[in-house]
Design a protein around this nucleic acid. Structure first.
Length: 603
DNA sequence: TCGGATGATGTGAGAACTGA
DNA sequence: GTCAGTTCTCACATCATCCG
């Protein structure tokens, strides 16, 4: 079974993607170029001959994915770094750079990852297809043939009208593109004077956002980070480096549509503390984009464009990805057959794929964000209003082992149990389990986790507060009125957080700084956000992590004794449960605060 | 900046090991 | 020596920032 993921990274250029399609056309320019010139850089005669024969039979037999993308091959004795990679796959050459890649002028080919993604780019737009078997044979489709037959442009900024016509058709069948157009149109309707959306706003609402593989930064948070930084190099770094995967996907797909004229790119401007800040990647829909959206969604005079869906598009990196892809595929198939929620549950149950209503709800919400038109009725039923091309789902064994993966089960349980929490917010438990990231390094991943934790506490627990982060600051400060103020530190440690001596000391420093409020100590004076009138005795400290281990209780005790305030450690599943209780008014904030009692919080 | 580039991390299959 | 279970290794899949 071919288990390729079908989300595109790295591949931007439509011109290059078109060459990949034309690789399957006998006698095309790109075939000639490979045969007469480019294949020379392939290291062995044997491989050159293999590739030659693959090219000659490409139109009739297709080419296995492995031969298109190539693999990591290094010269003997050379370090296994990517810049040393030799050319092995055809698309490594086709999607390469004739003048050498920027960081290695000797090389005219790209790496296997980028090559793979150029193939996937052509597949998701319907120009190529990949067989479901182990070989993953790639072939040109009829639609791809039409695209290949158009005149060639040599620049993405100047595609000709023939090419644009076909690409418009292609985007109307590609759910994530339709989703972005829909979001942009909604923005235009709700805010006609400023219809620009930032890549973060789009990323938050695109695909299976929240899952690993679909991380997204909070728009307001990003602007605060930018605003707080005065150093121009650091500001530049934030502008170019701080983005999640889903935000990147939003940027990618929007930039493809930009080449066809469906969207325009504009600076996204936001006022922070009376200062105007901007980010470069804002997008707004054009009239042409609206036309394409209308065709995709259909109206009284036009039928809907049938959407291209492949089971491999329905998840990427989440726990049990294959199982989840299959579950979502069958959920979609059930939606095609019925709108009754009970019957959908029934169908999934028969296949051993039903994991609870919360999970079903989350999957459907994900399918909607993926770009399919699904409406929820008041009686709890769902109506699929989109046309979907037939797609096949592989038979995988739903083994107990697969369903028993601990993290996977916990996530499903919580999505079902916590009815007051958006199932997507439960995804934070996957983030919490990621490999150790040090907060001192302030990696984007760690920042993302901190942000999400604060976001969660504000959203469901009626707390005020901010995410801080950065040197000599806690990760966040949360409060309600002047009754309680919580100094927060979060850690994403996959193996549990042990509150070692450094971590204790950091927290103790924050507390002393907060109690003293001495001007200039520390020089960022983060404690200024503590509301006036909040007494020192009402300060509390809290550590949040996926799990705790080792001598963490001792750490809490020590911190309590030294600082004379109360604190606690809380793991993410428990924090989510508290959030759910408070959101439903089963618990108030005083009760919550009383549980911060120098131990691990329990519900 | 844009359009990839890159080292890192996750994962599964088979090889090697282990102890009754 | 046998063999089921366990660990190790290694190639391949997939990021998540990073950068010329």
């Amino acid at each position: 079974m071919n288990r390729q993921k079908l989300w595109v990274q790295n591949a931007h250029s439509i011109v290059k993607m078109k060459k990949v399609v034309q690789l399957f056309v006998s006698g095309s320019e790109v075939q000639k170029w490979l045969l007469e010139e480019a294949l020379q850089v392939v290291p062995t005669l044997e491989r050159r001959n293999q590739l030659k024969s693959l090219i000659e039979n490409a139109h009739d037999l297709g080419i296995p994915m492995a031969d298109l993308e190539g693999k990591a091959v290094y010269p003997e004795g050379a370090a296994k770094s990517r810049s040393n990679q030799l050319a092995w796959g055809l698309v490594q050459l086709v999607a390469g750079n004739p003048n050498g890649v920027p960081r290695n002028k000797k090389k005219i080919w790209t790496d296997e990852w980028t090559a793979e993604n150029f193939v996937i780019f052509a597949v998701v737009l319907g120009f190529l297809s990949i067989s479901q078997d182990d070989l993953g044979v790639v072939q040109i489709t009829e639609f791809g043939q039409r695209f290949a037959d158009t005149m060639n442009s040599n620049d993405d900024k100047n595609l000709n009208s023939e090419e644009k016509t076909i690409l418009k058709e292609a985007f109307a069948t590609y759910p994530p593109a339709v989703r972005i157009l829909e979001l942009l149109l909604e923005r235009k309707r709700s805010n006609p004077s400023n219809p620009v959306m930032s890549k973060f706003e789009i990323g938050h609402l695109l695909g299976f956002s929240g899952e690993p593989g679909f991380t997204s930064f909070d728009n307001a948070e990003w602007f605060e980070m930018l605003h707080d930084e005065s150093n121009s190099d650091e500001r530049k770094k934030i502008r170019q480096d701080v983005e999640g995967t889903a935000d990147k996907a939003a940027r990618d797909i929007s930039s493809w549509m930009l080449a066809v004229g469906l969207v325009n790119q504009e600076r996204f401007v936001q006022i922070v503390d009376d200062t105007e800040e901007f980010m470069p990647q804002g997008f707004k829909i054009t009239l042409l984009g609206e036309q394409v959206l209308k065709r995709a969604r259909g109206n009284s005079s036009n039928g809907k464009t049938a959407k291209n869906v492949d089971w491999r598009m329905l998840a990427t990196k989440t726990a049990n990805a294959d199982y989840v892809k299959v579950r979502r595929s069958y959920t979609l198939k059930a939606l095609q057959a019925t709108s009754s929620r009970d019957e959908i549950v029934d169908r999934l149950e028969k296949l051993g794929l039903f994991d609870g209503l919360g999970v079903l709800e989350a999957d459907i919400s994900g399918l909607r964000q993926f770009g399919l038109l699904i409406e929820k009725e008041n009686n709890g039923n769902y109506i699929l209003k989109d046309r979907i091309r037939d797609f096949s789902v592989p038979a995988i064994n739903v083994t107990e082992e697969l369903k028993n993966d601990a993290l996977f089960r916990l996530k499903n349980e919580l999505q079902n149990e916590l009815t007051n929490i958006d199932p997507r917010d439960v995804e934070i438990i996957e983030l919490a389990q990621e490999k150790q990231k040090t907060s001192s390094k302030q990696t984007t991943a760690a920042t993302l986790f901190e942000t999400k934790t604060v976001e969660l506490m504000k959203k469901y627990m009626k707390l005020n507060g901010v995410h801080l982060g950065g040197p000599k600051k806690p990760d966040g400060f949360l409060y309600f009125g002047t009754e309680v103020g919580i100094i927060l530190d979060t850690k994403m440690y996959s193996k549990g957080y042990d509150l070692n001596i450094n971590q204790r000391r950091e927290m103790q420093d924050y507390i002393f700084d907060a109690k003293r409020k001495k001007p200039g100590v520390p020089n960022n004076e983060w404690w200024k956000i503590i509301p006036n009138g909040l007494e020192n005795m009402n300060l509390k400290f809290m550590w949040v992590a996926g799990d705790f281990t080792g001598r963490y209780l001792e750490g809490i005790d020590e911190t309590h004794n030294k600082t004379e305030i109360d604190g606690a450690a809380v793991d993410i599943p428990t924090l989510l449960r508290f959030a759910d209780r408070i959101a439903s008014n089963d618990m108030d904030l005083n009760q919550f605060s009383n549980k911060i009692n120098n131990g691990r919080m329990k519900i």
